[in-house]
Design a protein around this nucleic acid. Structure first.
Lengths: 146, 146
DNA sequence: CCGAAGTGGTTCAAATTTGAACAATGGCCA
DNA sequence: TGGCCATTGTTCAAATTTGAACCACTTCGG
């Protein structure tokens, strides 16, 4: 269980530093940054709300709120989904893309400093493998519930 | 950077499952559970507020609030610190200890299911080592700021 | 084609979290 | 001793998060 405690402490501290840097550097929450980043990587720079909520892992209502904030700042727009009238697409705007490009270097630097660069290639590879396992495990245990 | 993304997704999902289980099983937040757990491990089952805020990694005001909640439920008491009149000690009550003992098995089961049991001894050891490195790194970079 | 059952998003109130401002001490040094 | 600065915890308003209740729409099964 020592590993679990270490994990908790480290992940909290890491999250805190990342949050701090993003807020100071670009006035963004980590959640908001993640939204922009995921959108930028998606085809057409757009994703369904639900899809986004799943990957960023926030409640649906939380995402509605955050998208609202990002929309106010002109970094994201909403568009109706052509294939499903209920659906809403979050679309990264040109301005949002520029914001992300401006912010990414500093963010990446922090992540490297506090995580990536501390690890040997082996360790990094192990981390990634472990995290994929955890993701798979949470998914399967989740499907058992409903 | 793929490792970072995998880490983010996995840790969010993991946190969510843990939170879910604790809430359903004992009506506790993960943060609250951590508070009880850290207290139970401390000498005299008591810790200074600041110390607690550091290890649980929540803002000071957040801790004040949470301790308030736990106090209402009789799981924790406040005591003044003998060596420093400003200080406040959070003390785990007998009832709090029982609550923790009742809750721990389910919590541990989830953590094992979603993390520990997925890993080989080697992987587990690597994880723990990595997390200690991360903790050290965040500490040193923090001290540089003020 | 019709209605039941599901989905996808939003809204709303309530709970939580945060950061800044404060009040009360402690500690250090001239 | 007295003065100045750092620390401790709390309070307060504002921002965020969540879950439940709700519409609007889609999908099935008859």
């Amino acid at each position: 269980m020592a590993a679990w405690t270490a994990y908790l402490t480290a992940s909290h501290l890491l999250e805190r530093r990342v949050e701090e840097q993003l807020k100071a550097d670009a006035g963004l929450t980590h959640a908001q940054y993640e939204i922009l980043a995921r959108l930028s990587a998606a085809p057409g720079r757009r994703l369904r709300m639900t899809e986004l909520a799943r990957t960023v892992v926030v409640s649906k209502s939380g995402l509605t709120y955050q998208i609202g904030q990002l929309e106010k700042r002109g970094l994201v727009e909403r568009a109706t989904c052509p294939s499903d009238d209920r659906g809403v697409l979050a679309v990264l705007t040109e301005q949002g893309m520029r914001c992300l490009e401006r912010t990414a270097p500093g963010h990446v630097a922090v992540v490297r400093e506090l995580l990536i660069d501390l690890l040997s290639p082996d360790e990094l590879e192990t981390m990634a493998r472990v995290m994929r396992k955890v993701e798979a495990a949470t998914h399967s245990s989740a499907r058992a519930l409903p």
